[in-house]
């Protein structure tokens, strides 16, 4: 195998310090994605900095009535945490729609954000891929792109972000708490991941050495009418073709708050806040949901084998919202 050094970080400061002095390194926590990528030679770090012993596993209330999820709490412990289940059921549902129990037991909340795309070409070293090897070209655009993006694509990359959890985090307006060389910062979830543009090698906006320490979920009234609808090519253990994280706050049948984020369609969870705001104060009807769906997909572009996703995503949005509007 490729040789690499392994360092165990004792705390966040230690991790940041290590990150500041090393080049071509990767942080590792659960390792559920990184180790696979290393075995396939897609990732070839010279150094691994292990975060898994740092005590960032708590899930606790925040002063403003929200919830803080430790970056190293596992996906399983998060999904089955009573506070998460009661106050943010959308997040539980999304986490449990992904991977398998074994993976969720290993995978961490912070690590989930750093999953890399499942693009076939990204994984296959025999084919060009701008995300893996900038400048080599994108094989998916004119290739087989069933699992690829229809929104926010560029001529350089049409990969999707594979996470389910992140789709719910986007819908819930989560904040990402980060510690880096220059101190702490808070990033809106919507800004955390980026679109491919002409630098598809970068999945997010973090600086080298930045460590995600926790995720904050702000207080909301979105625990009653929520669903995570995941459409995939088999009923478990497959990545989303299209997924919808949907949440409503209703007053009678009037929409007080609405969140819709899409997975499987873009380089990041896809949300258009203005399309949601347009529905506030309106009735929770199929017609209104259709308007939202059209708005969310207005700029969608298919590449052949994924073109069906445009219509499918619209239908999924309407279905998800109709279901949650019905729920009591």
């Amino acid at each position: 195998m490729n040789t690499f050094s392994y360092t165990r970080a004792n705390d966040v400061a230690d991790a940041v310090q290590n990150g500041s002095v090393k080049t071509n390194f990767k942080f590792i926590a659960g390792g559920t994605n990184l180790l696979d990528l290393m075995k396939e030679n897609v990732e070839r770090p010279d150094h691994l900095i292990d975060l898994s012993r740092i005590t960032l596993k708590e899930i606790e209330d925040t002063a403003d009535g929200g919830l803080r999820l430790g970056a190293l709490a596992t996906n399983a412990n998060t999904a089955y945490n009573q506070k998460v289940e009661e106050r943010y059921p959308l997040l539980s549902k999304a986490i449990l729609a992904g991977a398998s129990p074994q993976l969720r037991n290993m995978a961490t909340n912070g690590g989930n954000l750093f999953q890399r795309t499942r693009c076939y070409y990204f994984y296959d070293l025999a084919t060009p891929c701008n995300k893996r090897e900038p400048g080599s070209g994108c094989s998916a655009i004119n290739g087989y792109n069933r699992i690829h993006a229809i929104l926010g694509t560029s001529e350089h990359c049409i990969a999707t972000h594979p996470s389910d959890m992140c789709v719910a985090l986007a819908a819930l307006d989560a904040k990402v708490n980060v510690t880096g060389i220059h101190g702490e910062k808070v990033i809106d979830f919507a800004d955390f991941h980026r679109l491919p543009g002409d630098q598809p090698q970068f999945d997010n906006i973090l600086e080298p050495g930045d460590v995600v320490t926790s995720l904050d979920l702000p207080k909301n009234n979105l625990s009653k009418h929520v669903t995570y609808l995941k459409l995939r090519d088999r009923q478990s253990y497959a990545f989303a073709i299209v997924s919808v994280a949907a949440a409503l706050e209703l007053d009678g049948d009037v929409i007080k708050d609405i969140r819709v984020a899409l997975g499987g369609v873009a380089h990041k969870p896809w949300r258009i806040k203005s399309a949601e705001i347009a529905l506030i104060g309106k009735a929770a009807t199929v017609e209104n949901f259709k308007v939202l769906a059209e708005n969310l997909l207005a700029d969608a572009k298919g590449f052949g084998s994924n073109t069906f996703k445009i219509e499918l995503a619209k239908r999924a949005i309407v279905r998800a919202l109709t279901e949650v509007a019905k729920a009591i």
Partner: peptide, 25 residues
């Protein structure tokens, strides 16, 4: 088993993307 005709190569060559039925199916 999907062939990418640009490369003449099976492109979903792993058990993540070559789907076989799982228990839930």
């Amino acid at each position: 088993s999907v062939v990418d005709n640009n490369f003449g190569r099976f492109i979903n060559h792993n058990l993540s993307e070559y789907h076989v039925a799982v228990n839930k199916d």
